[in-house]
Design a protein around this nucleic acid. Structure first.
Lengths: 212, 212
DNA sequence: GTATGTGAAGTTATTCACAGCG
DNA sequence: CGCTGTGAATAACTTCACATAC
């Protein structure tokens, strides 16, 4: 990824989210300042890594003091783009989709689920936690009306690619894909895959090959 | 990670899972052989990367021919440790937990949910899709009885660390953590975090900073 | 004294390019 | 010939170490 012409490693962006989580905790405890060392010991990265990640985007610290917690939270949100709220949609109304629709973490981080969609007419017309389940043909309309740019895709594997095509066609710019298959999409459409079984397989690998 | 004294990048392990998914699809279509180029074009990696990943663990291909699909599936399962079935447990009986308990992908890849646990006595005693919800004090007993080594942790943030402590104490070797906070655990306990909001934040970052 | 920001060094991961084998 | 397997080259990422600022 790039940010103002400098290359940003994916790993740095992931760590920014983790720093942000920690900073939110610190703010809740009314901590005002934090050093790169403190932020680092929470993750398993070095202090230099924390400083490097942050200086990719600007100079946010004060020498001899550290970082202002409230300010750094603002900065990270601005960098990640979550200083403004996002309206998102969920595709699929299965068990996982319904769990995601109700997931409080989304709203807490600035992502508001405005609607969900399903092809099954037995599921549409109802609502889950106040979020309406709509038929797929209302996709373009809802996307336009709520200026939706991101979608969460939680449908069966067999339906995932077709759904992704419709999302890309309707102008969605980013898809969070929960199906354990890679999706094809035009280059302007970002895809981020959450493959739960792959994570379990990694644990299986680690546990199987661990020698104390 | 290490495998027989050679260092294995995390990224390689993640890609092995992706290769395995693709190979399973190919096997379902009765494809018998596949080249590194074919496997690569599916992911966005180069063919050399595929061969490098595989040769970390052995020589599985035939020059001039490619890889035998069925054989490579076996090899990857053996490497990842999923050639034998795993009994797993789910901690938490909230919406996300229930979705995970019912998730078919686990069983399809060799992970069988034998029980779920919750601290709330109103939730225990029931069952979800045939999986019993038990009180936490039955944890050690179930772990021993079913030789459980991996756990999926899907509880609220405030309860996550305490639950992880109990899991580690009960001898669980790997935890798949869905809470968006880092967990502390003894070094012999592997932790793999799935931070859904972090993935959305990455999309937000990418979409916000994309210049065509 | 303390902690940032950053060139330089070091390490790890990826890609190239071709010898070697079926 | 086609495609793997792999040293060598390159690129990407991380860590060191210290000048700089508070």
């Amino acid at each position: 990824m790039e940010f103002l012409n400098v290359n940003v490693p994916d790993s740095s962006v992931r760590r920014l989210s983790a720093y942000l989580r920690k900073l939110e905790h610190l703010a809740a405890e009314s901590v005002e300042h934090v050093s790169s060392t403190q932020l680092a010991e929470y993750m398993n990265v070095g202090a230099a890594q924390v400083r490097r990640d942050l200086t990719l985007f600007g100079q946010f610290g004060r020498r001899g003091v550290g970082y202002d917690v409230a300010d750094l939270i603002q900065q990270l949100r601005r960098i990640l783009g979550t200083h403004v709220p996002w309206n998102i949609i969920v595709i699929g109304a299965g068990e996982l989709s319904r769990a995601l629709i109700r997931y409080r973490g989304f709203a807490e981080r600035g992502f508001r689920v405005v609607a969900a969609f399903d092809i099954d007419p037995r599921k549409t017309g109802k609502n889950v936690g106040g979020v309406p389940i709509l038929p797929m043909d209302q996709l373009p309309q809802v996307i336009e009306q709520h200026a939706v740019r991101l979608a969460v895709l939680a449908v069966p594997e067999a339906a995932a690619q077709q759904a992704a095509d419709r999302l890309a066609e309707a102008g969605i710019e980013g898809i969070l894909n929960f199906a354990s298959m890679k999706l094809e999409a035009p280059p302007k459409t970002f895809i981020n895959q959450v493959d739960i079984t792959a994570h379990l397989e990694q644990l299986s690998f680690e546990v199987s090959n661990y020698r104390p």
